[in-house]
Amino acid sequence: MRLAPASLLSIQDLWIDVGSRPVIEGLSLSVKPGEMLGLVGESGCGKSVTALAIARLLDEPPMRIRKGHVFFDGEDVLAKSERELEQLRGNRIAMIFQEPMTSLNPVFTVGDQIAEVVLLHRQSDKTAANKRAIELLSRVGIPAPEQAVQKYPHEMSGGQRQRAMIAIALACDPELLIADEPTTALDVTVQAQILELLDDLRQETGMAVLLITHDLGVVSQYCARVAVMYGGRVVEEALADELFSKPKHRYTEALLKTIPASNQPGTELPAIPGTVPPPGARPKGCAFHPRCAVATEICLSSMPELINQTHSFRCWNPVE
């Protein structure tokens, strides 16, 4: 089965279980070539599981993909063999994570780690790969790249390690970069630098970026389009300007009202009662209904479909 090429990545009705508990419950999402899509949601809603599923890096078991499709450039990643996946990962699809220290190898220099990726996926010799490593470190804004290639990860600051991770991710000019909370562990001034770098790279190389974060401010400023997750599903998706100025789903609306920056200092924040339900404890119907101020009978029993429009949402009582 092939798909219309408008999207580079298209996830369709994806279901994932951890043990016997559903974690992802019918998630659909698409990323167009060259765009930065923001995937936001509170802790435990399934952002990282989704990211890992795209690259088929889930711990299986306990995780299990029950059904659905993940089309990348028209081909279903879920139907690929491990060999085919290896040609995809680090090559056409690259990933970076929150804590670069855990994904960088502490016993190799940063230069060697970049060169290794180049050698794995490209016809190249050691000298050319080393040259490419220096080029990439310079491209991601690391000062004195000729010296930096010799450094071990622990000799770099947090921000520099994240830059080095990005350099590795860029080694083979990926078409899709999945960035899972790439700046959450960083200071705000460094966060701004890293996000600007990702945005520059996207514009220059035309790679698409799936930016995963829990920070609404970050998506608002860097992403053209946004998908909001709650309880293992995308509950709302729209152009960023539209979503933030006219949210439709009651959860998105509540979330935006609750952030301190949208309120007068010293006033009571409009809080959302209760907590995010973990997998296995998600209620029937719309998972947000126990915390929703306007839930009605139907919200308790069923979930509306995500209608595929420019502004789509799953809510029975959307904001007018």
């Binding site: 600051s157 947090g158 921000g159 520099q160 200071d187 705000v188 001034t189 460094v190 966060q191 701004a192 630098q193 996000l195 600007e196 920070d215 609404l216 401010g217 970050v218 608002s220 400023q221 860097y222 933030f244 100025s245 935006l256 952030i259 920056a261 949208s262």
Partner: peptide, 23 residues
Amino acid sequence: HSLLSAIPRVGEKKSRSNLSGEV
């Protein structure tokens, strides 16, 4: 000033950060 302008805020257009380097 830099700290304030580095905070990404919903609904505001981003201004380029003017701080290079790290602490």
